[in-house]
Design a protein around this nucleic acid. Structure first.
Lengths: 346, 346
DNA sequence: GATTAGCACTCGGAAAGAATGAGTGCTAAT
DNA sequence: ATTAGCACTCATTCTTTCCGAGTGCTAATC
C-alpha cells in the first residue's frame, strides 16, 4: 500500500489533533477539521489503511484512532515544520558564565519551567586538564586541596593531617604539584607520574602519599559526568502516564545520578550532534516506554560536547520542545564562545 | 467524661492496629485482639465514648474507627513506649567527618533508605566564622576565592578580573583579607569593616571592590541554611495520600530549598531540642495536612544546632521513626564530638 | 473508480440497581 | 456493668442497562 499525499494529510491531522486533545480522534472530527473536504466515510477508509500500515491504532473497537510510535516518528521526521518564534528565552541565562556548574543548573531549571517537562543537563565531557592546583593549610591538622579544571570546575578536598607541616612545606608541595599536574589531562595522571613525583619529593614521600589520596579523590570527582536535573515532578502532571507505580519508579531514577548517566549515555551514537528524538519504545531505558526523550547536544569551542534532555509523555509538544532546545543550544554555544573569547583574551 | 484505664487500653489497641493495617478498626477486632476480655458490644460503647472525646472517628457510618490527630497525639505522647534495638545503623556513617556537606547528605540518604519516608537535614546554624580565606590567580583573568568556614564548609567563587594582577598583589590581598576576616563571624562582616579594609589597601581600592563583591557573594552562600533531602519519591508509596494532585505539590516543595527552609524554620520554638512530632494539622505547612513531620535536633559541641526531619503519612511508624532519629542524633553528636577533639587537638 | 449516505454493529463508560457484609447503635436480658 | 441479639446503615462490588461515539460495510451517487 502506498502512503499518498492524502493519507499523509490525514495522518498529520490525526497526530496534531491528538497532541492537542489527548483524546482518540475519530473520522468525523477529521472530516470537519482538515481542509480536504471529505466525508467521514472516506476518512474512515483511509484510516483503516493507515492502521494497517501501522501508523495509528484504536485503543478499542469503538474508539477513534491514536498514533503509534511509528506514527509519532513519521510526524516528527517528516511532518513537523519547525519555524518562527525564536526569541523570548533570550536574556534569561546570560549571566554566570564563570561557573559551569551554576550555568548548567540554571539551564535545567529554565527549561523545566518553560516546557513543563522533566529536564536534565550533562556537563560537557571535554578532556579535562588541570588548570590550577593548590594546597593550603587551613589549620594545623587540615590541608585543603583546591583543584581547578578547565571550564572552571572547582573541586575541594579536605585532607586530614597527622603530621605537622609548616607553610614552607606546603609551598614546596604546591610547586611540585603544579609542575607536574598543571596542564595535564585528568586521564594522564597515573601511577607512573605519581611515582615520579614521590621520588622528587624526597623525605616527604609518605605524607605525599596521603595527600595524593585526597587529590586523586577530588580528581575523580571532577571527572564524573555531572548531571543536573529539574522539574522531575512535572512527570506527575500527565495523567496519561496513569500507572503511578511505574511513574514513581521513573521518578526514583531521577533521584539517582548513576542511572541518569546511563540513560543519557544510551543516546549517543548515530547522529551525535543536533536534536534526537526517542519515542516510546525507542527510549533507551525500561519503564520509560510511555514517555519520549528529546536530547540536544551543545558544543564548546574546543569540541567538548554535553547533552540537554527533556523527558515527557509520548504525547509531547514535540515542535515546541525541539524549538526550545534548538534555541537553547544556540544560546549556550554562544555563551561558551564568548566566555572563551574573554578567557583567551589574555 | 473520663479517660479511664480501659479506654486508654482500647485507644492504644485501635491506634496500633490502624498503624499496622491502615484499615479502620472495628469493635470485634479489638475484642479479640486485645487482652482485656470484653465483648464487641462493650468495646462499641467505649468506642462511642472515645469518639465523643475526639480521639477517633468513623470515616463513614458503617466503618470501624480511625484515630484523629488528637488520637495520634495521645498515642505519641503517652502510649508509645520507646525501647530497645538501638544498634544496627551503627558503622554506616562513620567516615567522612571532614566535610560537613557530604556527611549530612549521607545522613539524609541513610535515613530515607532505613525508614522509607522522605527526609531532610539542615546544616547546623552555628555562628559561622571565617577560618581561612584565600585568593589565587588561576589565570590572568580569573581570581579564585576560597573561603573555609568553621565546620569546614568550603565555598568557591570565581572572580573575573579586568586588570592585570601579579602574584605579589594577590599575596598582599591575602594578607589583608586574612588579617581582617579570619575569625570574624559572618554577620560581623559589614560595610564598616570593608571601608576600613579599603582604606588600608590604598591604591588597589577599586579592584578590591570588585573582589569584595565576589567574596560577599560566597559568604552569603555559606550563610544560607543548607538543606539536603533524600527519598522524596517515597511519598508516592503511600496510597492513603490518595490525592495525587496534592501529593505532587508536596513533592514540588521538596525540590525547592526555599520552601523547605520555611518548613523547617516553622518547627522551632517550644521544645527546641530533642524530638518533635507534628501530626496532620499541626504541621507548619499547607498541603501537608495528611502527613506527619518528625524532627530531631542534633547539636555540635559549640552549641550549634541542626535539624533532621522525616515526612511521611500520618499513619507513620512513629515508634520506629522516633527511635531511628534518636539513635542518629546520638551518633551525629558523637561524630562531631570526636571530630572536634581531633581538630582541637592542635 | 472514487466518494458518500446510510445502517447495523461494537464496545467503553456512565448510571442505576441489587447483593454483600462489615460494622454500628440500641434494647433487653443476664 | 456486661453482653447477646437484632435492626439498620452504608461503602463496596458486581450486574444490568443504557447511551453514544465511532466503526465497517454496502449500496447508491457522482
Amino acid at each position: 500500500m502506498e502512503l499518498d499525499e492524502r493519507k499523509v494529510k490525514i495522518l498529520k491531522a490525526i497526530v496534531m489533533n491528538y497532541l492537542e486533545t489527548g483524546e482518540p480522534v475519530g473520522s468525523r472530527t477529521i472530516s470537519k477539521y482538515s481542509d480536504l473536504n471529505l466525508s467521514s466515510a472516506t476518512i474512515r477508509n483511509e484510516m483503516a489503511d493507515l492502521e494497517e500500515m501501522g501508523y495509528i491504532v484504536q485503543p478499542h473497537t469503538s474508539a477513534g484512532r491514536v498514533p503509534t510510535d511509528a506514527g509519532y516518528r513519521f510526524y516528527v521526521d517528516r511532518l513537523m515544520e519547525e519555524k518562527e518564534e525564536v526569541e523570548e528565552v533570550k536574556g534569561t541565562l546570560l549571566e554566570r558564565v564563570d561557573r559551569m556548574e551554576l550555568l548548567l543548573k540554571q539551564v535545567a531549571k529554565v527549561l523545566a519551567c518553560n516546557t513543563n517537562y522533566a529536564t536534565l543537563v550533562t556537563a560537557p565531557n571535554y578532556k579535562k586538564t588541570v588548570k590550577f592546583i593548590q594546597l593550603s593549610l587551613v589549620d594545623s591538622s587540615n590541608l585543603l586541596a583546591v583543584i581547578v579544571v578547565d571550564g572552571n570546575i572547582i573541586k575541594n578536598q579536605m585532607i586530614r593531617l597527622n603530621v605537622m607541616l609548616d607553610t614552607e612545606d606546603v609551598l614546596k608541595f604546591n610547586i611540585l604539584l603544579n609542575t607536574f599536574l598543571q596542564g595535564a589531562s585528568l586521564e594522564d595522571i597515573n601511577l607512573e607520574m605519581i611515582q615520579e613525583m614521590k621520588k622528587q619529593s624526597g623525605e616527604y614521600a609518605d605524607i605525599l602519599d596521603h595527600i595524593f589520596q585526597g587529590i586523586t579523590e577530588a580528581i575523580h570527582e571532577a571527572q564524573e559526568i555531572d548531571i543536573y536535573t529539574s522539574g522531575a515532578t512535572n512527570i506527575l502532571k500527565y495523567p496519561e502516564l496513569g500507572d503511578i507505580q511505574k511513574t514513581s519508579e521513573l521518578l526514583e531514577k531521577f533521584e539517582d545520578k548513576e542511572e541518569l548517566t546511563q540513560l543519557i549515555e544510551g543516546t549517543v551514537g548515530e547522529d551525535d550532534s543536533g536534536i534526537q528524538v526517542f519515542i516510546g519504545e525507542e527510549t533507551p531505558v525500561q519503564n520509560m516506554k510511555d514517555c519520549s526523550l528529546v536530547t540536544a547536544t551543545y558544543q564548546m569551542p574546543e569540541g567538548a560536547k554535553g547533552k540537554i534532555g527533556i523527558i515527557g509523555p509520548k504525547r509531547m509538544d514535540y515542535k515546541k520542545v525541539v524549538n526550545t532546545l534548538k534555541n537553547l543550544t544556540i544560546e549556550l554555544d554562544d555563551i561558551f564562545k564568548k566566555g572563551r573569547e574573554v578567557t583567551n583574551d589574555e
